[in-house]
């Protein structure tokens, strides 16, 4: 049975008819055609599908679109400024070569922003522990950790 679901994605109200079983990530990728959110494992382990729901990082492959009814969703497409200027976390990833194939990157950036929100002044150990839910197979995490540590003061200062 198709059902209507509506929410705000990257500041814009959106609505679509979907099957009840549609996952949030499927809704984002297929109904909205926002393909920056990736599916790496479909079982909530790799974190490639991480988005923000009402300000908190969630794995979009692990909740239904219906559960996001009325929610405020931020995907990677909404992280940079509207003129395309990178968010300080994105900029730090670029500066420190914290991405290679780019597939885990959107989820990694959204997790990292969430991490800094909860730990405005994190240590390396905190960053490594908090990245537990995001796999990267390319970078060995070395430069991701560096980027997050470098971006933290700038991101914390934004709020």
């Amino acid at each position: 049975m198709p059902v209507k679901v509506s929410m705000t994605v990257n500041g814009k109200p959106v609505a679509a008819e979907v099957e009840e079983r549609t996952l949030l990530v499927t809704f984002i990728r297929e109904a909205l055609r926002l393909t920056g959110t990736h599916v790496g494992c479909d079982t909530a382990q790799c974190g490639a599908c991480t988005v923000h729901m009402n300000g908190n990082a969630v794995k979009a492959c692990n909740i239904l679109a219906l559960q996001a009814e009325g929610a405020n969703i931020l995907t990677i497409e909404g992280v940079a400024a509207t003129d395309g200027t990178l968010h300080p976390m994105q900029e730090a990833f670029r500066e420190h070569h914290a991405l290679q194939c780019g597939f885990c990157t959107p989820g990694m950036v959204l997790s990292a922003i969430d991490l800094v929100k909860r730990h405005p002044n994190p240590t390396e150990a905190v960053v490594r522990a908090e990245l537990d839910g995001n796999f990267c197979r390319c970078t060995g995490y070395h430069n991701i950790v560096k980027a997050i540590l470098a971006a933290a003061p700038k991101v914390a200062a934004m709020r």
């Binding site: 926002l34 920056g36 959110t37 994105q90 670029r94 991405l99 597939f103």
Partner: peptide, 21 residues
């Protein structure tokens, strides 16, 4: 040199096979 490919990946504009429909 900073990578030319990074910007598209960082804004979610990479085009992977599963994005092709």
């Amino acid at each position: 040199v900073k990578r030319k490919e990074d910007y598209r990946f960082l804004i979610g504009a990479g085009q992977y096979t599963d994005d092709v429909v």
